[in-house]
Design a protein around this nucleic acid. Structure first.
Lengths: 146, 146
DNA sequence: GCTTCTCCCATTGACGCCCATATGGTCCCA
DNA sequence: TGGGACCATATGGGCGTCAATGGGAGAAGC
């Protein structure tokens, strides 16, 4: 498996650390990634986390926009300036900083959500709500797998 | 037989495991599938289960969208983040997790329902009701395919 | 010198793997 | 045609392994 898939919820310990799910760590080590870059999602109250190639992806998106547009300007501000580096400890845990807590509402537990080429940190209940809304919207548009 | 057909109900044991019907396992082993991906159905209170190619189908659909649109973002949230991996043990059983129980209402028994290229997990009575309703609706509309 | 972060080790609880048993159905033979 | 042996599937439980978590000690920064 070379993509971030599925979701899992882990608890933050007394020191403010939380284990990254084993499956996600496997994807990271496959890519030889030891240092992670994260920033605020544009739509959801979630922190996106990924290796350096995640930056590439957003820079491609920005290149597709008019480079002087408001959209591109704001994206750069968020992605380039708003991002934070995060390191994993030997057990594969990361520190949940105030940067993460304030934006997501995370307090005691973190839901890790796979998004294919990256993953996200969510406050568990916020994730449940967003998922329910997405499912509802999808139902109305009639997008079904079958 | 290379498709998932018919249905069967098995009991969950004390450890929360349930045997996948032999006929379904045969279809899986034909495809060499050992790890399954599953997610919540968009219409019914059922969990859809299939091999990795089930995921591919959704990703093709996502690729057709503007990759950075809200629609694609929501689909990724549901498909990438909303899915769960399930492994079969050597006897062909799977764990019935809370993820499955909460969405389907399954408690002690599971009805496995073939859906052609994938199969679903249902709470037995919910399946009986949905089937009855489908039959009724079909009758009124004059027997059309879905 | 005190706080904060990083590394290391211990614990525990869940899950995967193994073997044993039950049950129902089929085939063979008398 | 009836009985019995055999086989496959479903089910139950023991045990080892690994991931998640908790806490302590050393190192680095304020």
């Amino acid at each position: 498996m070379n993509r971030f898939l599925s979701h899992a919820t882990n608890r933050i310990d007394a020191k403010g650390r939380v284990s990254v799910p084993s499956a996600f760590r496997a994807v990271l080590s496959d890519g030889g990634v030891r240092e992670l870059y994260c920033f605020q999602d544009f739509v959801f109250p979630a922190i996106s986390v990924g290796g350096p190639e995640l930056l590439d992806r957003f820079e491609k998106q920005m290149a597709a926009e008019d480079p002087f547009s408001d959209v591109a300007n704001q994206m750069s501000l968020l992605v380039h300036g708003g991002g934070v580096f995060v390191k994993l400890d030997p057990e594969g845990r990361l520190m949940v900083t105030d940067f993460i807590r304030d934006f997501t509402g995370i307090s005691t537990d973190v839901t890790f959500v796979g998004r294919g080429d990256h993953f996200q940190l969510w406050e568990p209940q916020a994730f449940a709500r967003a998922q329910a809304e997405a499912r509802e919207g999808r139902k109305q548009r009639g997008l079904r797998p079958e």
